[in-house]
Design a protein around this nucleic acid. Structure first.
Lengths: 350, 350
DNA sequence: TTGTATGCGTTATCAG
DNA sequence: CTGATAACGCATACAA
């Protein structure tokens, strides 16, 4: 077999892309006319010519080259999605909604994962920009290394998901963290828990974590002194201090203890720690976590969660962005979707 | 505030893209010279001119337009990733490896999710092709609706992941299913299980499922009659027949029963069914599943799994594709990575 | 070694 | 209404 087997396949020689010129020739008109048909339908053309062009397009199976169009009009039909960490199930769930909504609207998604490396956020935006993406969906912390705040992403619209940026001028789509936390705390108290501990990944500059932590403190402050509350950040692989925190919490025999975890990652870690301690969820300790993962019903007696409408979040973000791309020009919006309590065995009433 | 606040920001007016012409002017040379510097470094230029061009590029912060380059050379620096279902954790895990490897090699990934709708596979490839992607990574079944087999993807190289296509001419990257199944069965038998049931999502035309099922049957056939084996497909939400199968399996008191699940989705379902039946994993019934999900250690006594090197699979796929793009032209390769047994409580020896 | 001219596939600006 | 023609930003054959 000679080289280039795939390329030079007999059947369909690398699809020598048919261009607008081919169509024009076939229809016996000029390229400009074909272009007009493409962009304005038959609004600018005589019925007869329009039909001829249409026929030619069909028979040649012509499709415009987004690349050329992009070069010419400075638009690309591409949307840039920058996620902090594709390893995070939340990011993925959102990604899914985004991809769906974008595709339905005729956009394609270019994915850039910065792997929690904030320094790479700018790199991502720059790279995406050079591809003429028409806008950004950002699930990043928005931290800028040296420079001062640079809110505009090369003049392209952007929508933030889950994580706010400082002084943000963009639309923002997220879970209503305050309300969700209220739901969680209410639920625990209703179930008889009185000593609450909020466990979160390091707040760093991640707004959603900060919001949840703040909301938690407010919730506790708003209660009588009969309810105790504390919160703690746990680093990546700091299982030691996690177990320590649990033990400390469990000691107060006088009040029934429970934990609220800031996301699914922490939920899993806490569940593991509890297991190592030999504690039964919902009995020795209560547990409710943000994010309703598929495994939540099966860990221990089932883990109670606050389910985020992740798919909807992604779709919303895409929809907002596409509106902006379409010229929608009003002050930044904040779209907060409410979480849903899914009660399971880990928060059994006494 | 007037309209277009973002666009017309005073600081940096929508980045009126600096072009190769600007650089040429600044350096006092022709556009061609700049282009040469870009593409061949100083190999074709006198040291002096090269330096001048370099300086001009730096001072103007010039970056080439991938779009224009793409139009000119028919290459884009883009790689198309078509995924059967982004909702599937496996797809995502692979996606992650792919994105990383591609980015490291200077490629960006365009994502297209066909949501298990095989009819859309062609649509995906066509859309991606129009963006001049330089190659495809496909995690799809490769089914073509009407037409006969069309192995070439518009003349672009492709790499298949996890799912083979009929008569495939592409590189293929996947878990070594036969060997992995052997490991699983051996493990179960070592642990004293004698009545085995393989539970899988519908085989449909998904090669990995078929391979696992086949391997399972071979494993059983190769054993003495003391080991019983059967396999069963379970549809999307057919929990009823799943429970029925479990009950039937459990009845044979004479032999210790165990289940092998084809992927994480089924593992979760089986675990749920067992829980509903009040069975304890590792005691009333054994369970080992393909895919080592993060939750595996925490469900019941911990679920034994065959861990796939998903990240490596994704990286491999990307690497293979990039080699092909680079002109590597040898017969299709098959790269099978071996799974790793992670023993946990669900397959406790008697 | 360097510059000139042409074209990639479209769209937009002109005339006609 | 329609057709030349000139860009868009870049890479290359060709000429110098």
């Amino acid at each position: 077999m000679p080289s280039k087997t795939l390329q030079g396949a007999p059947k369909r020689a690398a699809a020598a892309k048919t261009t607008i010129a081919d169509v024009a020739r076939k229809a016996g008109v000029s390229k400009a006319t074909v272009s007009r048909f493409l962009n304005h339908g038959d609004k600018l053309l005589s019925a007869d010519i329009a039909r001829r062009v249409e026929a030619a397009i069909a028979s040649l199976r012509y499709t415009p080259s987004p690349m050329a169009q992009s070069l010419k009009r400075g638009k690309s039909g591409l949307i840039g999605l920058v996620v902090a960490d594709v390893a995070n199930p939340y990011s993925v769930a959102v990604l899914r909604g985004v991809e769906t909504a974008c595709r339905e609207a005729g956009y394609l998604v270019i994915l850039f994962n910065i792997g929690n490396d904030r320094a790479r956020e700018q790199e991502a935006i720059a790279a995406l920009t050079s591809y003429q993406v028409e806008g950004f969906i950002l699930n990043t912390s928005g931290y800028l290394p040296g420079k001062a705040r640079q809110s505009d992403h090369y003049g392209k619209p952007a929508v933030l998901v889950d994580r706010r940026h400082a002084d943000m001028q963009e639309d923002f789509v997220s879970l209503d963290n305050a309300s969700a936390m209220g739901t969680a705390v209410d639920h625990l108290i209703d179930a008889g828990y009185r000593e609450l501990l909020f466990v979160t990944q390091p707040l760093s500059n991640v707004s959603s974590r900060i919001e949840r932590e703040t909301a938690f403190r407010h919730c506790i402050a708003g209660r009588s002194a009969k309810v105790g509350g504390a919160s703690q950040e746990i680093g990546e692989d700091d299982i030691e201090s996690l177990e320590q925190a649990l033990r400390k919490l469990g000691k107060r025999a006088s009040r029934r203890p429970a934990i609220i975890t800031g996301n699914a990652v922490m939920t899993l870690r806490v569940a593991a720690a509890a297991a190592r301690l030999g504690w039964t969820l919902g009995k020795d300790i209560g547990l409710i976590g943000f994010d309703d993962a598929e495994w939540a019903p099966l860990v221990g007696p089932g883990i109670t969660t606050i389910a985020q409408p992740t798919d909807e979040l992604g779709r919303m973000a895409a929809r907002c962005l596409i509106e902006r791309i379409g010229g929608f020009d009003l002050p930044p919006r904040q779209i907060l979707l409410t979480g849903k309590l899914v009660a399971r065995g880990s928060t059994m009433p006494e």
